[in-house]
């Protein structure tokens, strides 16, 4: 994501864990304008930021069954911004009453030689895409509305193709582990976007 991580914490052996709370939905192209209008009214009053990002997902195969996944993202319209590396853990299960998807999240801002470095570490790129859209903020809440594009040629961000006629809408917040009021706040905000968009907790395992 083009926006830098919300907090940069001092490291102390991984005892500080940031969790990402996430709600996702989508909106059809023809209703995109109304959604943007509504978001402009609801969110903090700043110029809504547009972004064009290229994200690459890298895998490290290990002895365990599932590979380690890292996501590298860089901005195509702000080439001087640092690259962004993100690790997302498995979504926390169990608490059905929690309204948002919760997973461990580590965000690192890095220099531009990330891909070279990752391949030196043993990572291999699995897939990539281009995301283009708008980002809104309300306090610590972040709303992203974007369109996903597939790259026709690997590594070539010029020739891209639309993935669908809908835009992905994501509502997310980073908070230290254990703050469950966060998901309530998110749900209240999501209520205000109905019926334009139905934001919900989508379990990725269901889609596999």
């Amino acid at each position: 994501m083009e926006a830098p991580p919300v907090t940069v914490l001092p490291v102390s052996g991984g005892t500080i864990n940031m969790m990402e709370y996430l709600l996702q939905g989508s909106v059809l192209d023809q209703s995109l304008e109304s959604l943007l209008h509504r978001l402009r009214g609801l969110c903090d009053n700043m110029e809504p930021d547009t972004f064009v990002d290229h994200e690459m997902v890298f895998l490290l195969k290990g002895q365990q069954g599932s590979p380690f996944i890292l996501r590298a993202r860089h901005s195509l319209d702000r080439p001087n911004a640092p690259w962004h590396l993100r690790y997302l853990g498995q979504p926390e299960v169990g608490d059905k009453s929690r309204h948002a998807l919760v997973r461990n999240c580590v965000d690192v801002a890095v220099s531009h030689n990330l891909t070279e470095f990752l391949s030196e570490m043993g990572f291999r790129m699995d897939h990539e895409f281009v995301a283009k859209g708008h980002i809104f903020r309300k306090g610590a809440l972040k709303v992203v509305v974007c369109k996903l594009y597939r790259l026709l040629l690997p590594g070539n961000t010029e020739s891209t193709e639309n993935l669908s006629l809908s835009n992905l809408v994501e509502l997310s917040m980073l908070a230290p582990a254990g703050q469950d009021t966060v998901s309530d706040d998110m749900r209240n905000f999501a209520e205000q976007l109905k019926p334009l968009v139905h934001l919900e907790k989508i379990d990725p395992k269901r889609l596999m």
Binding site: V8, L9, P10, V11, V108, A109
Partner: peptide, 9 residues
């Protein structure tokens, strides 16, 4: 690679 302190995490 130059990164921010979260790299240690």
């Amino acid at each position: 690679l130059v990164a921010d302190p979260n790299f240690d995490v």
